[in-house]
Computed example of a mutant assay.
Amino acid sequence: MIVVMKVGSPETEIERVSQELTDWGLTPEKIVGKHKVVIGLVGETAALDPLRIQELSPWIEHVLRVEQPFKRASLEFRHGEPSEVIVSTPSGSVPFGRNHPVVLIAGPCSVENEEMIVETAMRVKAAGAQFLRGGAYKPRTSPYAFQGHGESALGLLAAAREASGLGIITEVMDAADLEKIAEVADIIQVGARNMQNFALLKKVGAQEKPVLLKRGMSATIEEWLMAAEYILAAGNPNVILCERGIRTFDRDYTRNTLDLAVLPVLHSLTHLPVTIDPSHGTGKSEYVPAMSMAAIAAGADALMIEVHPNPAKALSDGPQSLTPERFDRLVQELSVIGKAVNRWSQPAVALA
């Protein structure tokens, strides 16, 4: 349920209404929009009469029920206004959201050694990326596949962060590692395999770093948004969704099926920013540029693209990784689409 206050409502009146609702056993959350203030109500609201709330103040414009099961993630909860997630990086604050330029996230699947991760960071930064992705802990289907270097890789990510000024995104698999990951990461990633690890979702929701939540391989949109709801309900409002492809019946030609239709669907359902990962979504580097451009045209707020200095020798996901040179050209190509939809601010890298 949401309470929409009238334009110009005094702050004292907003606070008084919030306190009254708190006394009723509800949890009010103030959401400041461009023109109005909305008070979101969480708790047992099913039996509440909206007219009873309306009578609390002449400054209340109207009271609406949130029909979706994902309350805090619902677009209704913010009265139709998209939210933004502002992430602090060594180079400054970077906003994710529908009213901001597309954010570029790039880097290798796994952190392999210091030379490789620092080199990659410097190359993708020069091309226009604002964040470096790199796995320290890697969930793999096979127990014999490379699982990442673990805690030692976090130190390498910190070195790349210091050298490049990029923000860092890396995945958490175990809540026991969360604190040390949060010391290095500017955004904490919850991977597809952990999308419904509810204990982990509660833990990342209880800490302050923004969270990138990847869609599970077979998850419905509602299951994905309910997973986001766990993080939001635990107190962390800074959630970024990431579509990375879903499993369908045809796996002969692409690794997954990249669901770009999810962009307009999510825009109608949730206020949360949406990232597209065309690398995992296709599994083949030759398809990544086309899907990246399509994602921007469809309204993506960010792209996560795998880049490796030598994909043929990558310890994981080499076939879907771009070389730094191909990433340079891709950013230039993306700038054309980004400018056309008014979602681009960075100059494209000049190619020799």
Rank of each mutant, 00 (worst) to 15 (best):
D23G: 13
L51C: 04
I31N: 12
K30D: 12
K34T: 08
S57R: 09
P50W: 07
W59H: 13
I14A: 03
P50V: 09
E61K: 04
E11G: 11
K34C: 06
Q19C: 00
V32P: 14
E61F: 01
P28V: 08
S18W: 00
G33D: 10
V17Q: 06
S18H: 00
S18L: 01
G43Q: 07
W24R: 03
E29D: 13
W24F: 05
T27C: 08
E29W: 12
I31P: 05
Q19A: 02
T27S: 03
L26Q: 04
I39S: 01
E61A: 08
L41Y: 05
E55P: 02
E44Q: 00
L56F: 05
L51D: 11
K30L: 10
E29S: 08
Q19L: 01
P50T: 14
V17H: 03
E15L: 13
E44P: 08
H35C: 12
G25F: 14
L56A: 09
Q54K: 06
W24G: 09
V17N: 07
H62L: 04
L48I: 09
I60P: 07
I53S: 10
E29F: 12
R16F: 15
W24Q: 04
L41H: 00
L26H: 01
I14G: 06
R16N: 15
E29I: 13
R65E: 10
G40C: 04
L26C: 10
R16K: 15
R52G: 08
K30E: 15
A46F: 09
V32T: 15
T22Q: 14
V63C: 02
T22N: 09
V37W: 02
T12A: 15
K34M: 06
L64F: 00
V38Q: 10
K36E: 07
G40E: 00
T45C: 04
K34W: 06
W59R: 06
R52L: 13
S57E: 09
V32C: 04
G43W: 14
I60Y: 01
G43D: 03
V38Y: 04
D49A: 08
L41A: 01
T45I: 06
V32F: 15
P28W: 13
P58D: 12
L64C: 00
L48D: 08
T12M: 12
E55T: 14
Q54G: 01
V42N: 02
P58E: 12
D49F: 14
L26V: 11
K30F: 10
S57N: 15
E55M: 13
I60W: 00
E11P: 07
V17C: 06
E15S: 14
L51V: 06
E44W: 05
V42G: 08
I60N: 02
W24I: 00
A46L: 09
E55N: 05
G33R: 08
T45N: 06
S57P: 15
A46S: 14
P28Q: 03
E20W: 11
L51S: 03
G43T: 05
D49Q: 05
R52T: 13
E29P: 09
K36H: 02
T27D: 08
I39H: 04
T27R: 02
E13G: 13
I14K: 10
P28T: 12
T12I: 10
